[in-house]
Computed example of a mutant assay.
Amino acid sequence: MEGRLLFLCAMVLCISITAMSVHCEYHKENPHHGHMKEKKTHLHFYLHDILSGKKPSAIMVAHTKTLIGINFATPFGTVYAIDDPLTEGPEPTSKVIGNAQGLYVSSAQDILSLVMYVDFAFTTGKYNGSSLSVFSRNPVMEGDREIAVVGGRGKFRMARGFAELKTTYFNTTNGDAIIEYKVTILHY
């Protein structure tokens, strides 16, 4: 009888302990989350990726010992660091509205395709101090293509969306390019 009573007390104690609420500061719900309204923003700008000249905006930081596949200005396996200007129009003299900083890797053997890890920072106007983050595959030789926007900061906090890209200028000899970006993002 004593064994059953002891077992019953132990079970009641276990059930009581597991049913107790635990308060901790590890996780806290945002009380304002329900009041934040999601916005949809469309952006249109041009990226100037210049590999040639005395002051290139993209430079090779790593490459393979042997060339594999088609011989482009950006051969398979090469990694480039970029600080590309973003402008309102396709002309190099257009107003600069920001810059794209990050890396891209030439990731295909038979075609020109890049994987991009880039932060698009805006330095003027309504979005000054805000940026968008891209981590996506960019099949350069396709006329119209799409890349993923995976984050942002400032006015683009918690951004997600996509950018439609179209090459307006591309020099296959030196790799210089001007790319039109039409971006659609959802953010708070």
Rank of each mutant, 00 (worst) to 15 (best):
59 I>K: 12
23 H>E: 11
101 Q>W: 00
92 P>W: 06
114 L>F: 15
174 N>M: 04
150 V>A: 01
162 F>E: 06
53 G>I: 03
118 V>R: 09
38 E>G: 03
163 A>S: 15
137 R>C: 02
140 V>G: 00
186 L>A: 04
142 E>W: 07
80 Y>I: 03
118 V>M: 12
103 L>T: 08
41 T>Q: 01
29 E>I: 04
116 M>F: 10
69 G>T: 02
105 V>N: 00
153 R>K: 11
70 I>D: 12
68 I>R: 14
48 H>I: 10
21 S>F: 10
112 L>I: 03
84 D>T: 09
117 Y>P: 00
65 K>G: 14
119 D>L: 01
33 H>Q: 02
31 P>K: 10
164 E>A: 12
156 F>K: 02
90 P>N: 06
129 G>N: 06
106 S>T: 10
106 S>G: 13
125 G>K: 02
9 C>H: 11
33 H>S: 05
99 N>H: 14
140 V>F: 04
168 T>W: 14
126 K>T: 07
43 L>C: 03
174 N>F: 02
133 S>A: 05
86 L>Y: 01
73 A>R: 06
7 F>D: 06
156 F>N: 06
57 S>A: 04
99 N>W: 02
134 V>R: 00
73 A>K: 03
88 E>L: 12
91 E>Q: 12
51 L>K: 15
106 S>C: 07
181 Y>P: 01
46 Y>N: 00
15 I>C: 09
2 E>G: 10
132 L>A: 02
125 G>F: 01
170 F>I: 12
112 L>G: 05
22 V>A: 08
155 K>S: 08
187 H>S: 03
27 H>D: 04
67 L>W: 07
29 E>D: 11
18 T>R: 12
132 L>I: 02
68 I>L: 15
103 L>I: 13
73 A>W: 04
135 F>G: 00
160 R>Q: 11
91 E>S: 14
106 S>Y: 05
71 N>T: 14
147 I>G: 00
185 I>D: 07
67 L>Q: 12
47 L>E: 15
7 F>Y: 05
141 M>Y: 08
88 E>H: 00
48 H>V: 08
146 E>V: 13
163 A>Q: 01
166 K>I: 06
20 M>L: 08
155 K>F: 08
171 N>L: 11
